[in-house]
Amino acid sequence: MSILVIAEHDNAELKGATLNTIAAAKAVGGDIDVLVAGSGCGAVAEAAAKVEGVSKVLVADNAAYEHQLAENVAKLVGDLGKNYSHIMAPATTTGKNMLPRAAALLDVQPISDIIAVESPDTFKRPIYAGNVIATVQSSDAIKVASVRTTAFDPVAAEGGSAAVETVDIVDDAAVSKFVGEELAESDRPELTAARVVISGGRGMQNGENFEMLNKVADKLGAAVGASRAAVDAGFVPNDMQVGQTGKIVAPDLYIAVGISGAIQHLAGMKDSKVIVAINKDEEAPIFSVADYGLVADLFDAVPELEAKL
């Protein structure tokens, strides 16, 4: 078996999600090649070559791949993927955008968001917001899967010495153009990579009150998240959303503040190691998954928590 893993990167750095995806590829077994498609992405390829367990790094360095436009990268993955038994990418927004497109070009039904590898053709994945886990077997010649990164411990970023090979294929579908990007600037860690996450829900009442969570986050080196209710109410931007349709996180410590615990939210955080819930409603469903529950008014409890840290 041979597996093509699509690297997640920003042309400068190899993103951690790639290491979790390689871990899933290792669970399948076989040679693991990593594709770095980008522009001016030599440093990423070098980093990928050092990752434990990688046989070969393929670099497609061309302006057509600079912004990871799905139309171009999927075509490249479709072209290269024919020679592999498996194609895997992290289930990030980049992976989710590109991978199904590549699969369709190969006439393959992809498997999204795998959380376990049962055998080379059989995977576990959550459905219905994680209320059900399905074991799915693929009969396609090439298995295409996106990987839920929180379900696989990352492989070591160092220790490998893979060969780096240049790919000259330039796939420019010429139907799409990158216009611009607005990335949230923050000194805090990324939500999906943070060791500690503190999230606020509708109970926060407004966006200004999230400042209380920011202060706690600064003390803990935590990322700040939100429930869909808080996003829908316009308190905070959507990229902070933790849940079925937002980010899936599994930090060592997750602190849910003023979040009732709708199943859609639980789907995004219930694999966290330790969960703390602070809510004034003692009947809130969040308490049924919390390791430590504090029934209290968050406007008293959060400042006190910050002071005690």
Partner: peptide, 24 residues
Amino acid sequence: PRTKTLKVEPPAERQAGIKVGDVA
């Protein structure tokens, strides 16, 4: 269909923990 669902099961249940009395 190209894939077959072999089995569906509930996710591992998470046990509710304890309630603490205060922030301290």
